[in-house]
Every structure is written in C-alpha cells, then in structure tokens.
Design a protein around this nucleic acid. Structure first.
Lengths: 304, 304
DNA sequence: AACCTTAATTAGTATTTCCGATTATAGTAA
DNA sequence: TTACTATAATCGGAAATACTAATTAAGGTT
C-alpha cells in the first residue's frame, strides 16, 4: 500500500486552487513559494497522476486535479471538524456556527433567532449567510458553512436534515380586490396574469405553486420579483395577488399596507422548513438543539 | 487556528484501538512502540483532550477517544479512497472491490455475478462478504466494505443507493397442500401456524410479511429457520408453507423437491434490491456500472 | 533591450520523526 | 522475598523531511 498524501500537501493544493497563483497561495499558507511548489509535485508523485498542467508561465488544473481538490476539501473539512470537536468537547452551544439561510426565510427568522440565542446561549457566535438553495448547498459541501435553514422538499444531495415545522402560504392582495372572494380562494375567480411570483431561483415559487395547487399557469404574471418585499409592494399597488409565507406576515411584512391575507386552495398550503447538515458531521447534538430552538420560532413547529 | 492532527497519528490511534496494545499496534503500523506512544501523546496534545486513560500497566479509551476514533476512521477512509481514486484514474472497473451482500441474496447472486464479471471486467477483483444488513452497514461506515447489495426499504443511515430491481415473493408449499388453493392465495385458507419464516435478523422476514400483506400473525409458526434452504427443507417435509424470493427459485432452490410456488396476496408482493454506498464515495461511476450490471441478473430489473 | 512576473530548481538549514535503549510499574512464578 | 515477564513512558541521537533564500528559465511588458 502506497503512502497516504499528507494533509499539509492537500491544503497546499487547495490554496493553489483558490488563489490560482503559487506565490499568493504560498503566502496564504505561510510558506515559501518553493515549499508549496515542491509540495504539489510531491502530491502528484504520491497520487501517481498529473494534477496541474504547467505552461512555463502559467498553469491549469487538470480534470483529475479538480476532482482531487473536491475530495481534499472534504478531507480537510472533516479533519478541521475533528479538531474543533475535540477542542470544544462538551460545549455544544459555544463557539462559531456558520449558518446559511434562504432569502425568503432569513429576514423573518434571523432577528428573533439571534436575539433569543443571545439570551439562551450567549457564547454561541452565529454567523449567517443568505443565499439561494443551490449556492448554500454548495457552500455546505465545501465546508464553508456548517448548517442550513432551507424550505423543503429539495434535493439534499446526500445531506441530512431535521424537519423543523411548517410555514403556511397566504394569498395576499389589496383589500379592494378581496371583497367578492371567499376562502379558500378558487383561482378561477382571479383574472389572468394576476398572480405575481418571485424569480425562479427562489424555491418559494415552486413550493407555493405546488402546495397551493395552482395548476392554471395562465393566472401567473410572467413578470417576476426579486424579494418578498417587492411582491408586497406590487400587491399593494393593486397590480395583482401573490403568495406570502405566514412567517413573513407574522413579522409584519404587511404592516402599513392595505393588503389582506386569504387562505389559498390546497390540501396543505404550506412549505416545510428544515435544518440541513452534512451526513459526516460531528455536531449533531448542536444541530439538534438548534433545530428545536428554531422550530419554536416557526408558525407551526413540528419538532419537540 | 491550531495545527491539524496528522493522518499518521490518527492511524496510530486507530491501530491502538483495534489491537488494544501498544506493541502489537506499533507492529501493525511498522513503527516502534515508542513512536506510536509519542504519536498518541502528540495527538492528545494537539486535540487538547485526553483520548486514553492510562493505568500504569494498561489503558482504556475515554468516551472522547472512542469518538475521535470514529471520526478518524472516516477521515482515513476518505484519504485512502482519494489515493486509490487518483492512482486508478480512468479504470473504473479494475482493481479490488469489496462488496457486502445479505444471506438471502448472496447465494443466488454471487455465482452468476462473479462468472459474468470475470468475462466483462476480468481485472475487477470482487471480494464478497455475506452478513446481516446491520453488520454490513457498519462495515460500510467503517470503510471495510465499498458497496452493499441489500433488500430495501431499510434505514440507510445516511448512505445512498441505486435501486436495481424487484424480486417477487412466492408462497412455496408442498404440492399436496396446494390442491384446493387458487391464486393469489388468501391466507385464511391456510391453517394456523402453517407459515414458516426466517429469524428476525433477516430483513426478508419483515419485507415478506409487509409485501405480501400477511396481517394475521396467527398463521405464522413461531419456529424460525436460519436460511432459505432450511425453509425449503421444512416445506418439503410438509411442515407448512413459506415465502421464497423469485431469485432463489430461478437459481433452482426448489429443484429435487415436491414444492410448488404460488402467487401470494399483496399489491406488489416483492422486495426491492438496492446497491448501497457511502455518500462521500468517489467511485460513483464504478457503482453505477456495477448497478446496471447486477440489475440485469435480477428477476425484474429497474435500472437502465 | 531592459524589466517584471511567474514557476521550477538547487543547496544548505531547520525541524520533525523515528528508533533503540532504558526506565518505571505491575503482575506472576519460583 | 526474589527473579522474570509484560507493559507503556522517556530520552538521546540518527535519519528523514520540510523549509527557505537565492537562482534560473521563460514569457510578457514597457
């Protein structure tokens, strides 16, 4: 059996991949350029394959090199987690925690969450990143985030999750449009192009359409918004109706508008909120506790 | 940020855990006892916590030590996989492949599988281990196996799977017992205690009962068998009926008996066969190919 | 042509890792 | 008691390795 590559050399490779430059990568690793250079060569020899194509002046990662980078990242992440785990034994709610959250949840969750965490677990340093589901999953895989709050169902790509609770959808429109409607609202009572949704990058769009059984796409206006706040503005301007999650309404997104929230059609007109983490994590206890904590902040908690 | 523990020291810890003796562990690692001893101490210092309790003459892993062993195993497995992956680039169907299979599948799959693999991929060294679902999943987690063939559904414990196909259940009994029955067989036509099953360790028992909708447990004889071949013997001795998967029948398990195979009740009276692998694997291509390959050997392939 | 940037190479130095021998301790046999 | 065995820790020196600074080589820029 050949010798295993060293973590050090793997980290050199990662740095090189990140900086795409030997000198800057070496600086980032606090070693000289020659050290990093020979480290990479060493690695190539041990692995028995070329990782970067050299071109005298510049270089390019080979396909193989990219693959190795991916896997090396996972290995280093696991090792860092092991180190962190051992060093902070017994203190599951202390230290840094990097949480990712989608834009249709974050603005309505982060406030109460950080506030309450500060009280219950003052030593927990919560670091929040807001991004789309796809990007967050990518950051989770790469070890740049520890845990995500997503709307389910979604392809977890091998990750694991706790279901935290449900967040009902409401059909929101100007009160002048709601007079002759009764709940649950049948969509055929609405004019064509009268329902506004978010850009397709937001999973809320798909979830709302599915959960509220909005089969008739002629009702959907092709113009898309980039945030729930925009949607609210548009509805308040009497452009049409839209779906808004209960969480956002509870946090007062409709305050100061003339909008009303009606019950839409749909057996279970709601989305599920879940906490997602790597299957290889060693912080399940932390995530479990956090899950119970967040669940209590949701309109319909399912956990504990 | 503190320095990462070295893979070497982690492997020393694993060896010590396995052999529970410094000298033997050191031998297994091809290093001296002093090297291993100081390696472990080094590790404890880096991780900032005690991994083993020393007792002058002997020692004991602490709870923390056991945890670290678990995680170290994963890290080392990943690294070995990375090494193997790089060294055998492009040759997805070559080299060693350690496959685990449950006892109610193995005897009927392994023969044709190895025979056909030998023809199509002669450089693949298939290594087969037969054990219960639980044990196989444990070995998969520990990196002692690469891939499993299991009957689904089963708690995959964070692993991933390809569904290969279905394997129908047949109700097997002596032909003299089958005369006044018609298919699909209603179980109330059978006497109490007349259905024999395997020990509960075998997932086949649960799968058969569920798939064949055998709700009335008074029909089940409390005496359990340890293999399908025993069940066949018992049925042939006119002790009662039993469920046998089609795979086994196709491979001639009923040859030389006076047994008949009848269609049992049940919407879909069959079990699913799946190929299970770690979510962190880098051999998906290999497993995919293998999955397609095995699927073709099943009674009802679902793949490709 | 002179100069800058880039990565590889080289040779010498510093650090780390490893081993063999020894020590310390406890259990066991004479 | 007194050897004897087995265990893990410790220590000093040797071997392996990792690292650096300086240099080289080659392409791009002024």
């Amino acid at each position: 059996m050949s010798k295993l590559p060293s973590l050090k050399n793997l980290s050199y490779l990662l740095a090189l991949h990140q900086h795409q430059n030997f000198n800057r990568a070496a600086q980032a690793c606090n070693v000289s350029q020659s050290t990093l250079s020979s480290g990479i060569q060493n690695l190539e020899e041990q692995l028995g394959c070329q990782l970067i194509e050299r071109d005298h002046k510049s270089f390019l990662f080979t396909g193989m090199g990219e693959e190795v980078v991916e896997q090396a990242r996972r290995i280093l992440t696991s090792t860092e987690e092991l180190l962190y785990f051992a060093q902070s034994q017994g203190k599951i709610m202390e230290g840094p925690l990097r949480l990712g959250c989608i834009p249709t949840i974050a603005p309505f969750l982060v406030g109460p969450l950080t506030k309450q965490l500060q009280v219950d677990y003052p030593k927990l340093q919560l670091n929040i990143r807001e991004d789309t589901t796809d990007n967050l999953l990518h950051l989770l895989r790469n070890g740049e985030l520890d845990v995500l709050v997503l709307a389910l169902p979604v392809d977890l790509q091998g990750n694991q999750s706790y279901v935290l609770g449900r967040d009902p959808f409401k059909l929101v429109m100007h009160q002048s449009m709601a007079d002759n409607l009764h709940e649950p609202v049948q969509y055929n009572q609405l004019p064509d192009n009268s329902i506004f949704l978010l850009e397709k990058e937001h999973c809320l769009t798909g979830h709302a359409v599915a959960a509220c059984e909005l089969a008739d796409s002629t009702k959907i206006n092709p113009f898309t918004a980039t945030s729930l706040h925009s949607l609210v503005q548009m509805a308040d301007a009497r452009l049409g109706a839209t779906f808004i999650p209960q969480m956002a309404i509870d946090r007062g997104i409709l305050n100061g508008t003339d909008l009303v929230a009606l019950q839409p059609t749909g057996q279970q007109a709601s989305r599920e909120i879940g906490l997602v983490y790597r299957p290889t994590t060693n912080r399940r206890q932390t995530f479990r506790r956090l899950a119970e904590f967040i669940a209590q902040l949701l309109p319909e908690p399912l956990l504990k």
